[in-house]
């Protein structure tokens, strides 16, 4: 006992101790458990919050209705055979011009006698799918980009963040508008345009989180144990910094939907006649001019507008619930994409 007095005891090099420690795999498993519990928290938060539950139900119903509205074929093979809407959404003359809502046309008809219910329900396909795909693409790229920037720091961070500043220097919607004007509209060009402007927000959020997370002992320990950077980033850093990104992603789906509708309303986006909500609004905007003593064919603009409103509001409510569940404190929903 006395022989050890005054000596400095250094730990960490005793292999017995290391063997006693949890393995890295076990550590990851515990993180996976934590992720699982994070999803449980989100689900539980949504279930507890009736408003969020309502929002979720609206999104689910609209998405399902859009999915089942018309058959889907890929390469000549029908992968979705159902057609729940009563009319082909592009077929003209199925009713009178601007027929008011009735049992045969629950949302009335438009100026070409097309059934608005069929158009509005099918329209969800464009907006919702673009919202989801854009968010997935933008979040994936943004997270990788921001993680590299935050994790490596130094000059890498400096260069990557200045590139980010360039993207942020343009208003997101205006940049998307320019891209669509240059390269044309359509589904994938719109996806590309919004993803190109949307990833930056995720990159900045995750970088900030990673700057905090990478200081944690478990990250330093992983490095000290010789784990490769890629492994450290994807197995230890990102999972612990991802919460704000999830919240941002949830909130930004609605923002993308609004953006797509905005471009559609400006006559960009899709070809005329496409039953996309913004494009419908654009085509029917003339109904707002009634002339002297004329009647307003309100259904032509109210229903597509209501769909945009309901979907975006529901997504925002869900986003709020996710935010509460993860305690991520994200409040910026205006960053686009």
């Amino acid at each position: 006992m006395s022989t050890e007095r005054g000596r400095i005891q250094i730990s960490g090099f005793d292999t017995d101790g290391i063997e006693d420690q949890d393995s890295l795999d076990a550590w990851s498993e515990s993180e996976a458990d934590e992720l699982e519990s994070r999803w449980r928290k989100i689900v539980s938060s949504i279930v507890r919050d009736r408003l969020a539950l309502g929002g979720f139900a609206v999104v689910a119903v609209m998405s399902l209705a859009a999915l089942l509205s018309q058959p889907i074929s890929v390469g000549g093979f029908t992968i979705q055979p159902f057609s729940i809407v009563p009319y082909d959404p592009t077929q003209t003359g199925v009713g009178a011009r601007y027929a008011a809502p009735s049992l045969s046309h629950p949302m009335g008809t438009d100026r070409l006698g097309r059934d608005l219910f069929s158009r509005v329900v099918t329209g969800g396909r464009y907006s919702i799918s673009i919202g989801l795909i854009v968010t997935a693409l933008a979040a994936t790229f943004g997270v990788i980009y921001g993680s590299i920037s935050g994790y490596f720091g130094g000059r890498v961070d400096e260069v990557l963040m200045r590139i980010l500043d360039v993207v942020f220097a343009f208003p997101g919607l205006v940049l998307a508008l320019i891209l669509v004007a240059l390269f044309g509209g359509g589904f994938w060009p719109l996806v590309g345009a919004f993803a190109l402007v949307g990833w930056a927000t995720y990159a900045r959020i995750i970088r900030g989180e990673i700057l905090k997370v990478k200081q944690n002992e478990y990250v330093m320990a992983a490095k000290a144990l010789g784990a490769r950077d890629r492994s450290v980033i994807f197995r230890h850093v990102i999972p612990n910094a991802i919460a704000p990104v999830i919240v941002q992603a949830t909130l930004s789906i609605g923002t993308v939907v609004i953006g797509v509708a905005a471009l559609g309303f400006l006559g960009l986006g899709f070809d005329p006649g496409t039953p996309e909500w913004g494009t419908i609004l654009d085509a029917e905007s003339d109904t707002l001019a009634t002339g002297a003593g004329g009647t307003w064919d309100w259904w032509a603009t109210v229903f597509p507008g209501l769909m945009i409103f309901l979907f975006v509001m529901s997504m925002n409510i869900i986003g709020d619930a996710v935010n509460d569940a993860l305690d991520a404190q994200v409040d910026d929903i205006g960053g686009g994409g």
Binding site: G95, A96, A99, A100, P101, S102, P106
Partner: peptide
């Protein structure tokens, strides 16, 4: 929304233009 829609359903006409 419900009032608006309810008030209008049934007022529509499918008459020819």
């Amino acid at each position: 929304g419900a009032i608006g829609v309810a008030g209008c359903i049934g007022n529509g006409d499918d008459e020819d233009d």
